[in-house]
């Protein structure tokens, strides 16, 4: 895949391309063979758009081109002449973070965070087209973006939460604490059920104790 660009005369080695990036008009000189991903990261220093495979497979480099999600590793910079490009750096507005950005941060949808920009822009395009997506619609829209850490669940939750916020609905992530048992006089029996008691206490009576353990005296509900 060696590119023989050095054979070109130096003055003709770069193209001057005018486009709109994150709402600002930009005239950037760059080598005409460069992908939009390379132009963004190398020539415009917008490193929020991430490099994942450069094969058009992982979705990490997704940006919006005229509002539609594209894989910037499969788009030539030249193709963006006169068009509008939006990257993660352009999502926040004067009022602060885009609701998707806030929801991703609040719900832990950004784990290592490397795939996050691609997911955010893909989700933004979805919500602009469909303000009330169902879970299957969210999954379908995000099917081209790989995430290796989160298990996707928190990403789906964040898109749902952001969609609710964008519709003007009140919704908040839950924030309960796990611990802080009070104990009975023995000091050994918690006063309220934890995750084990919550499931087993009710079922316990009926259950056959297959393992030979003595049934444990879980609290079924808080005192």
């Amino acid at each position: 895949m060696a590119r023989r660009r050095e054979k070109l005369p130096p003055d003709r080695s770069k193209a001057l391309v005018a486009m709109t990036v994150n709402g600002e008009r930009v005239e950037a000189p760059f080598e005409p063979h460069k992908t939009m991903l390379e132009v963004l990261r190398e020539d415009l220093a917008l490193t929020g758009t991430k490099h994942g495979c450069e094969l058009g497979e992982c979705g990490t480099c997704a940006v919006l081109l005229d509002g539609k999600p594209v894989l910037s590793c499969l788009v030539l910079g030249l193709e963006c002449e006169g068009r509008s490009v939006e990257t993660v750096e352009g999502m926040a507005g004067p009022e602060g973070l885009h609701p998707l950005q806030k929801a991703f941060a609040d719900l832990g949808a950004a784990q290592c965070g490397y795939c996050t920009p691609g997911f955010l822009l893909t989700a933004k395009a979805l919500l602009e087209e469909n303000p009330r997506p169902t879970l299957p619609e969210i999954r379908q829209a995000l099917a081209g973006n790989l995430c290796r850490c989160t298990g996707y669940v928190k990403i789906f939750e964040a898109v749902e939460l952001a969609a609710a916020w964008l519709r003007g609905e009140a919704a908040e992530p839950r924030k309960e604490s796990l611990y802080g048992y009070d104990f009975d006089e023995s000091g050994l029996l918690p006063s309220h059920p934890g995750p084990v008691g919550a499931v087993l206490a009710a079922a316990r009576e009926a259950a056959v104790d297959e393992g030979g353990d003595k049934p444990r005296p879980y609290r079924a509900k808080a005192r």
């Binding site: 609040d106 992530p173 309960e176």
Partner: peptide, 14 residues
């Protein structure tokens, strides 16, 4: 308590 990552915002803004 369920705490959002301190760097969640940095990750969501690039």
């Amino acid at each position: 308590t369920r705490q959002p990552r301190l760097d969640g915002k940095a990750k969501a803004t690039g």
